[in-house]
């Protein structure tokens, strides 16, 4: 329970960074998507359940303030958390290949659905432009942000974990 609350705190912190700092560090109007990093990394560290929980909460935060359709981002981020959780059995300290692929895939997956909802359904077929000008730079920038945030989040994750290590071990054997 404590762990869940701590994660909620991190989500709020990331949201605050997203709305304030990210626009300052934006390059050419494209800012990294910090909120998507959370389900990817927490799923990768701790498994699907954790990934889904973090994805759902950060998605709801994202929806409340940025999208008109509450639940859309939550669903997308939950899925992202679920899939990165499936790779958590391959978790190794210092292995960056999987998180990079997961982050890139996550941003691509999310932004592509955003494109479908906001442009394609309105008959605005600007996929090449959207791909090269919005999605690709965002993927690159988000991956860089993820690499910067990887160590601090890993550390925080360990701090949360130290208390519940034993319980978690049992959980994993059941799963």
């Amino acid at each position: 329970m404590k762990r869940k609350l701590c994660e909620l705190g991190i989500i709020i912190l990331f949201y605050l960074l997203q709305v304030s700092l990210c626009r300052v560090i934006a390059i050419g109007g494209v800012a990294p998507n910090l909120m998507i990093v959370l389900p990817v990394l927490f799923g990768y560290f701790n498994g699907s359940k954790e990934g889904m929980y973090v994805g759902f909460c950060s998605g709801i935060m994202y929806d409340l303030f940025f999208t008109d359709l509450l639940g859309f981002t939550a669903l997308m981020f939950t899925l992202i958390g679920f899939f990165s959780g499936m790779l958590s059995n391959r978790y190794e300290e210092g292995n960056f290949v999987i998180p990079i692929l997961l982050t890139a895939g996550g941003v691509l997956f999310y932004e592509f659905f955003v494109f479908i909802g906001n442009f394609l359904l309105q008959n605005r077929l600007i996929l090449p432009f959207f791909m090269t000008r919005v999605i690709l730079p965002e993927i690159v920038y988000t991956v860089i942000a993820m690499l910067v945030l990887y160590k601090p989040l890993q550390l925080l994750n360990k701090v949360f974990d130290s208390r519940k290590r034993k319980v978690k071990d049992i959980d994993e054997t059941i799963l």
Binding site: G47, M52, L69, L70, G71, A74, L75, G85, L175
Partner: peptide, 27 residues
């Protein structure tokens, strides 16, 4: 333990997905 066994990640995913779909529909 029984409850924990019942809630496998796939089932949780299904529940959250349905919940989100409902939220989208409502909003």
């Amino acid at each position: 333990n029984k409850i924990k066994n019942f809630f496998t990640p796939a089932k949780i995913l299904a529940i959250i997905s349905i919940f989100c779909a409902a939220l989208i529909a409502v909003s």
